[in-house]
Design a binder for these strands. Structure first.
Lengths: 120, 120
DNA sequence: ATTTGAATACGAAAACATTCGTAGATACTA
DNA sequence: TAGTATCTACGAATGTTTTCGTATTCAAAT
């Protein structure tokens, strides 16, 4: 059950905004170069695959992510660690932190998190 | 210039082992279900795309990654942070560290790295 | 009631990625 | 030198993902 890239984009919206119509997803994604029916079709496919559930009680169907955000994220992260960093979490983390985008707040969060990891 | 999944696998080998023949890559990947000419073709395509450079002076051509490992990794990581973690590096890092696979050595490495970040 | 706008369903085209068969070239070996 | 093994080139088949056009349904507004 591996979402494609487009499917991931849609899942992001659904995770973020919760239950949404196709139109809402379409507008949130706001991809100038893609038509409405494309998104519709993708979401129908996702439904066929069981990635989303759907409320069809009114004319405008409402979609909701069935896949759990954290599970998918972790799966993707693990795959990345394996396939890009040869299984080394620390290499990934260090590269992530070295990217100059990380604020002091985030660094503090991480330090705090590391402390909690030690207490067991 | 975004490598596909198969292309990434090949790049890994080239980054790891340096200049290599198709046969060497093929044997390193050791994918039971894929033939030699498939890998050959992929590497030829990568050459067409300018992802690798090639020494054709002898019969067996030698390939070398042209894309820089750290650049590609960083690009993929940034993309992941944006598209999966809404731009939050710390969320990615914490999920990575929370995955139970991280050894004490790795945690120490990270702590050390955080220290060096503070000294500027 | 008819028109209009917005929604779904669905097939099929287009784009992209992967796979492999076969032909031809080159080197090695008996 | 003949035969065998190994390599590249390349076209074409297959598979997957993305895209959209068109038909149809439904509901709201005139």
């Amino acid at each position: 059950m591996k979402p494609t890239e487009s499917e991931m984009e849609i899942l992001q919206v659904l995770w973020d905004k919760g239950q949404s119509s196709v139109r809402e997803v379409f507008e949130t994604l706001d991809k100038k170069d893609v038509g409405y029916t494309t998104i519709l079709k993708l979401m129908q496919i996702m439904h066929d695959k069981g990635m989303v559930i759907r409320d069809t009680s009114s004319k405008t169907h409402l979609y909701q992510a069935k896949l759990v955000k954290e599970e998918i994220q972790e799966k993707m992260l693990d795959k990345m660690i394996d396939s890009v960093y040869n299984g080394s979490t620390s290499r990934l983390v260090m590269q992530a932190l070295g990217n100059e985008r990380t604020s002091q707040e985030e660094l503090d969060e991480i330090k705090a998190f590391l402390k909690t990891l030690e207490l067991n």
